[in-house]
Amino acid sequence: MSDVFDRATDLEQWQREQALSKALDQPASTVTSLGCHECGEPIPEARRKAAPHCTRCIDCQKDFEHARK
């Protein structure tokens, strides 16, 4: 019987970690920002149109993605 509980606990932990990971990957706000949250520089209109919910300028986004690897 403890095997069933152990598997259920493992599954619950995995689901929690997946949900937290997904939540951390999403921007805090769904409103399009005019300025980069990292450097404060204005986000170009073309970038805001291409990625409507972006919160970083292209350079800061590249740095962010590079740091995550």
Rank of each mutant, 00 (worst) to 15 (best):
T9F: 14
E41H: 09
T32N: 02
S33Q: 15
P52I: 08
R56V: 02
R7L: 06
S33C: 11
R56G: 01
A23Y: 05
A50R: 15
M1Q: 10
S2Q: 10
S21H: 06
Q26C: 09
K69Y: 13
E12M: 08
G40I: 05
E41W: 04
W14T: 08
C39I: 03
C57S: 04
L24W: 15
S33D: 07
F64W: 15
C54W: 00
A51R: 12
E65D: 09
T55F: 13
C36V: 01
V4Q: 07
D25V: 02
A28H: 13
W14Y: 08
S21A: 04
D25L: 04
C54I: 14
T55M: 10
A19E: 14
L24Y: 14
F64Q: 12
A51M: 12
K62S: 06
V31K: 15
C39L: 06
A50M: 14
Q61P: 05
A46N: 14
Q18N: 11
D25M: 05
D10K: 09
D63V: 05
K22I: 05
F64R: 13
H37T: 10
H66F: 06
K49F: 12
P52E: 08
V4L: 13
P42A: 02
A8C: 08
A46V: 14
F5G: 07
V31M: 14
D59L: 07
A51S: 12
A46F: 04
W14P: 00
F5T: 05
T55Y: 09
M1K: 10
R7M: 09
T32G: 10
A67P: 02
A8S: 06
D3F: 03
L11C: 01
R16T: 11
R56I: 01
H37A: 14
L34C: 08
E17S: 09
G35Q: 14
M1V: 07
C36F: 00
D6C: 03
K62I: 10
E38Q: 14
S2V: 12
E38A: 15
K69S: 14
D63H: 06
A8L: 12
P42W: 02
R48A: 01
R68T: 01
P27E: 01
A23E: 13
A67N: 09
H66D: 11
D59Q: 11
D10M: 05
G40R: 03
S29P: 07
R48S: 01
K62N: 04
P52H: 05
K49H: 15
D63N: 11
